[in-house]
Design a binder for these strands. Structure first.
Lengths: 352, 352
DNA sequence: CTGTTAGCGCTTTCAA
DNA sequence: TTGAAAGCGCTAACAG
C-alpha cells in the first residue's frame, strides 16, 4: 500500500512534526529534540535555527494528545469543585491555576455540584486518563467520591478536608481562623456568642468549632446549650441556623459563622425577624470575599490564605506525580488569617 | 529487538485492550468493536459475553488519550469562564455540563479571569488539541481573545455575546429581559427610572439598554440625561454607577440594573447614603440567583433561561464539530424570562 | 464472524 | 551531530 493512502473522511490534525522536519530537511526526531529544548540534544546552531524558523513559519503547535500518548502523561490536572459559584473558590482556583501554569500543567475545572456528576467526572477525567491527577475541593461530596472511586488512587489531593490519612490533603488553619472570628466578638464585650458551625460529620467543621470553643474557653465563657448549630455551609443553612439561635430563650448577642455563605443567610434571618445588625446582633464570618463589602451592613470576616491552599495543593500533587515523597498532609499557615473589620460587629446591646 | 523490550522507567497505563483480548482469547480489534458497541460489528453473543466479562473482571477502562489520537477527537469540550465565581455562571455551567454528558463529551472549565490566562487557555486547550471545541462565556475578555486567537477557528461558540457574524453565538433575549426589569418599575408608578447599563462598547449592554429604552418609550416616559450609566457588570461597577445616579439633581426613584452583581453594588451605594429600599428607591435586576433571596431587602429580578443557553451552546458546538450546518446564531427564548418579585420594589416616594 | 494491518503524532532508544 | 525505528493504546479499513 503506497504512502499516499489516506483514510477517507478523517480530518487531519494541523501542522505536525513531520511537516516541520520535511521543511527543514531533517528528521522528525531532531525537530522534537530541538522544539522540546531537550537538554541532552547536541544539535548544530544552524539546524536548530532552521528548525525553529520552519516551525514558526508553518505555525507548528505540538499536539497534546499525541504527546500524551507517547509520554504517558497529559500534563493536565483537574480541579473538582462542588459548584463553581461558591464564594470561596475563586481564590483557590486562582492559586491553583497559577501554580499549575508555572509547573507546566494546564488546569481544568470540573463542576461536580451533584453526586452523580462527581463520580462521572472522576471516571472520565482520572480513569480514562484525561488528567494526570486530581484536586478535590468538593466539600460535601468528597466522602462519597472517596469511598467509591479514589480508594487506592493516589494521584489526588483533597483540599480543605482531611479524610483519614490515606488521601493527601491541604487544609487551612481552620482552628485559628475560627478562633479569630469568635475572639473578635468576645473582645467587643460579647459573652453570649453563638456559633454557626458546618455539618457535624465533617472534619473541617470540627476544626472550626474547636477554634470557637477555644476562644470561649480562654475568655472564661460558657458555651450555652443550643448556641452551636450544625447546618450546611450555604445561605439556606445559615438562615435556618440563625433562626434556631434566635428562638432560644435567651438568644445570643453575637454569632460567629463558620462560612461566608452561611453568614449571608444568617443576616437575612436576622433582618426577617426585625433584628438589626450590629445594634442588636453582631456577626463575623470565616472566609472573606468581595461580596462581604456589599452586604448590609458590610460583614466583618477572617480572610484565609485560600490562594496559597490552591497553590500548595498543586505543588503537592506535582510532587506525587513525579514520584517524590514529601509530606502528604499540609496545613497552610502563611499568610496568616487576617481579620477584616467592617460594620457587622458592635458592642452587645444593653439589656433592659 | 525482541517483543519484550520495554522502555525502562516509563510508567505503564492500566489494563489495555490487548490485555482484555489476550484474556478473552480474541484479537484486540474485536474487543474494541464489542466494547464500543460498534453497530457494524457482527460478533457472536458468546465471544461478546466473554469479552465483556473479561473487561469488567480486569477493570478495563479505555484510555482517552489513545482513543483521541486514533479518532482525532478528544470528546471533550472546554468552557471558558471569566471567573468561576460570577453569580450567573452556575446555571450556564449546569446546562452545558448536562448537555455535554448527553452527547458523550466531558466538559471542562477553564478559568480566564485575566487576559493573559485567557489566551493561555485557548492555546493550551484548543491549539494543542486538548479539547475538540470551546465555549466562551467570558464577557469582557471575549473581544481580545477573538482578535488574538480565535479568528478563523470555528470550533467555538460564544455565549451571551454576539461578535460580528463570524463567530457562532448563543444569547439570551437581553432586550426582553431588560424590558421586563424596567416595566416592573414603571408599572409600580415610577416615572424616573434610571438604568445601570453594562460597558458601553459591548453588544450585550446595548441590547439590554434597548429593552430599557423601549419600556420607557412605550410608557411615554422620557429618559433623563444622566440616568443611564455605563459601568462594568460587577459590584464595584454598580456601586459607582448608583452613586453617580444619586448625585443627579433630581435622582431617579427607581433603577433597573443590567446585572445582578451591579444591583448588589447599587444597593450598597444606596444604603451608604442612607437611602432605604424600597421606600425611597426601588431596584430590579437582570438575572436571578439564590443570593437575591438573601439581600436586604430581597431583590426583585428577572430570571433568564441561562441553563438553556448553556445547553444550546453545547448543541450548536456539537453540530459544528460534526460538520453539520445549521444556524450559527441563536437567541434562546424558552423558557421565557420571568420576573421574580421580592421586596426591592415599592411605589415611588411621595415628593414633598 | 474475526483477525491483520496500518496508522494517529509524538518521544526516545539505539545506531551511525 | 543526526537519523532510523519502535512503540504509546486505540480505531478502522480490508481481508479472509
Amino acid at each position: 500500500m503506497s504512502k499516499s493512502t489516506k483514510r477517507a473522511g478523517t480530518p487531519r490534525f494541523g501542522v505536525t512534526l513531520v511537516d516541520v522536519a520535511r521543511d527543514a530537511g531533517v528528521d522528525q526526531s531532531t525537530v522534537s529534540r530541538v522544539l522540546r529544548s531537550d537538554p541532552g540534544a547536541n544539535v548544530t546552531d544552524a539546524t536548530r535555527a532552521r528548525i525553529r524558523e520552519a516551525a514558526t513559519r508553518l505555525g507548528y503547535v505540538p499536539n497534546a494528545t499525541a504527546r500524551g500518548l507517547a509520554m504517558r502523561r497529559t500534563s493536565t490536572i483537574g480541579l473538582l469543585v462542588p459548584n463553581a459559584v461558591s464564594l470561596v473558590f475563586a481564590d483557590i482556583i486562582r492559586g491553583a491555576t497559577d501554580a499549575a501554569l508555572e509547573l507546566g500543567y494546564v488546569l481544568v475545572l470540573a463542576d461536580a455540584s451533584e453526586l452523580g456528576r462527581a463520580s462521572d467526572a472522576v471516571r472520565k477525567l482520572v480513569l480514562e486518563g484525561r488528567v494526570d491527577g486530581l484536586l478535590i475541593a468538593s466539600g460535601t461530596i468528597t466522602d462519597k467520591i472517596t469511598n467509591d472511586l479514589i480508594e487506592g488512587f493516589h494521584n489526588c489531593v483533597v483540599l480543605n478536608r482531611r479524610i483519614g490519612s490515606r488521601l493527601p490533603s491541604v487544609i487551612e488553619d481552620d482552628e485559628l481562623g475560627m478562633f479569630l472570628c469568635a475572639q473578635e466578638l468576645i473582645d467587643r464585650g460579647h459573652s453570649e456568642v453563638a456559633c454557626l458551625a458546618g455539618p457535624e460529620d465533617i472534619d473541617t467543621s470540627r476544626r472550626r468549632l474547636a477554634g470557637y470553643r477555644r476562644a470561649m474557653r480562654e475568655a472564661g465563657l460558657p458555651v450555652r446549650r443550643g448556641s452551636v448549630v450544625h447546618e450546611p455551609f450555604d445561605e439556606a443553612g445559615g438562615y435556618r441556623g440563625m433562626t434556631r439561635i434566635l428562638q432560644l430563650r435567651s438568644p445570643a448577642t453575637a454569632v460567629a459563622s463558620a462560612s461566608l455563605a452561611a453568614a449571608v443567610g444568617a443576616m437575612a434571618a436576622a433582618r426577617d425577624r426585625g433584628i438589626s445588625i450590629p445594634d442588636q446582633l453582631s456577626v463575623t464570618a470565616f472566609h472573606d470575599a468581595p461580596i462581604a463589602n456589599y452586604l448590609s451592613p458590610p460583614l466583618t470576616t477572617v480572610a484565609m490564605p485560600l490562594t496559597q491552599v490552591g497553590r500548595e495543593a498543586v505543588l503537592m500533587l506535582d510532587r506525587r506525580l513525579r514520584g517524590e515523597g514529601g509530606a502528604s498532609h499540609l496545613t497552610v499557615r502563611e499568610p496568616a488569617p487576617q481579620i477584616i473589620r467592617r460594620r457587622s460587629v458592635g458592642p452587645p446591646p444593653v439589656t433592659p
